[in-house]
Nucleic acid binder design. Structure first.
Lengths: 272, 272
DNA sequence: ATATTTTAGTAGTATTTTACTACTTTGTCA
DNA sequence: TGACAAAGTAGTAAAATACTACTAAAATAT
């Protein structure tokens, strides 16, 4: 602590005289990509909020807001998620930081995007003020589609490969190109795309999928979730072999989402 | 474009009167975790720069600096990397955004960390002003060690499991706890840890490892790189089977890094 | 220069994982 | 009550991974 710098100052003295300067600084926001399975477990849903002012007025956007001066972005994401949707105690992981200088026409904004996963999309439409809605989302190699049947809204994006100046492909592998009348606000389409890729990938080597399940679930339902996330069908024998040590059988039965014979209920082993 | 908000303003009018407010805003920085294989291809190296002022004076830190008001963090990372190390045209990918309120004692700083991968650690010690050095880095499930034999510096961290309030494990799975006299500046140990985990994981499903190879390389050398990144030995027959459609054989031979019989040279197929 | 050592590169087999078919059981629904 | 639908189990084929063994070519030691 006795160390002195080139000007002969100790750390304490240095910090006391430190002037951060009058540079223009960007605002910092968080956005949360809230994902959940739909009722039939045959597709993913995203929670979107309709903007009520410029810019991107009337467009659909991810939940989000400004980061307070003395909170971490993770805390801000937890707080905003609760304020805007009433959701709490759910899986939340940092996704990507968006920083293009003119991504917001009002001012310079750095946006830290998070992914939230929720078990089965139930009520919680609550969300006090803002107009929120769940959209079916799907993504192939060529396009990404978000739609809400009851609202008659469909947003469609073409995925274009993006190659960098040095010929090396970056995280930002694809850029979504708008193909429909309606569009997501800001660069939120990119966030959705990145989020779907992240989830898809993480299913393979983590237990992330369990965050999309209720406390108790049947194996056929769990398999359906895996199949949607991975984008391919699985063989039940193999599937059961692989996950058998991750789940515990309960001695009661439940009805799987698509009728038929009753199925044994399980819960996730490592949680709770 | 005729849309008017609740105050009767068009987007143009809205933007003209928009006042971003007088909130305190954080500064934004980028840090770059520069990784490369060592000469013998039996370990990874990190490029560190010695700090010459408070805070963390004399500590070793990642390359990095402030983001300009009108540049993206990616651009800032490219620029800083060039300014501090002379490196350009290398693999650069966003890693994680650090945002704990007091991570920098001077002021509130949001730091966007990037990973850079460079082919074989050669000269480029150049780096104009700053004192830079390569450190051997290794990480097991229990600890992370960074050391430089010639400088006689060793930094050692214990990896402690971190469980969140809601019982759900986050990206920030582990926290590095300092075990040695010397330490990395700021929260850079966490960045190094996250970076190593990211690379280790990405090797399995991407061709990221080729960014650590020179233009032309032998298969035994490529295998050594994979083995270091994956942390386990591979069988050469199987390795060659898996990799054969990613590489093109050249009709010349080179000497693999550990003597013996001369080995055929290859190059990566998808690049250049 | 010759023998010894070291690594490159290939062949081949055992084991495990993944792909796929088939059948019995237990529930729902008309 | 019979037809249908999904649950759950058994078993086999094909493919990937684990592992051993050998020959060829270069470096090094004697």
């Amino acid at each position: 602590m006795e160390k002195r710098n080139a000007n002969g100052l100790t750390e304490k003295e240095f910090l006391a005289q430190y002037n951060p300067g009058d540079y223009k600084r960007p605002s910092v926001t968080v956005d949360i990509l809230v994902l959940g399975m739909n009722e039939k477990l045959d597709g993913l849903k995203v929670l979107l909020i309709r903007r009520k002012d410029h810019p991107f007025m009337d467009c659909w956007a991810l939940a989000g807001g400004f980061v307070e001066y003395d909170e971490s972005t993770y805390r801000a994401a937890v707080r905003e998620l609760y304020e805007e949707t009433g959701l709490s105690d759910i899986y939340l992981e940092q996704l990507y930081t968006m920083s293009q200088p003119y991504r917001d026409p009002r001012m310079r904004v750095i946006d830290v995007a998070y992914i939230a996963l929720i078990p089965v999309v139930e009520a919680h439409a609550g969300s006090d003020a803002s107009e929120a809605a769940w959209f079916d989302v799907s993504m192939t190699d060529e396009e990404m589609i978000l739609k809400n049947e009851t609202l008659q809204v469909e947003m469609r994006y073409l995925l274009e490969k993006k190659v960098f100046h040095n010929g090396i492909l970056q995280i930002e592998n694809y850029v979504p190109k708008l193909q429909s009348e309606e569009a997501l606000a800001f660069d939120h389409a990119e966030i959705v795309m990145e989020g779907l890729l992240r989830i898809r990938n993480k299913v393979e080597y983590t237990d992330i999928a369990f965050n999309l399940m209720p406390q108790e679930f049947t194996l056929p339902d769990l398999q359906k979730v895996y199949e949607i996330l991975l984008g391919k069908t699985l063989y039940k024998t193999n599937f059961r072999d692989k996950i058998q040590d991750k789940v515990v059988a309960l001695d009661k039965k439940g009805i799987s989402v698509t009728g038929g014979k009753k199925s044994l209920l399980y819960r996730y082993k490592n949680r709770y």
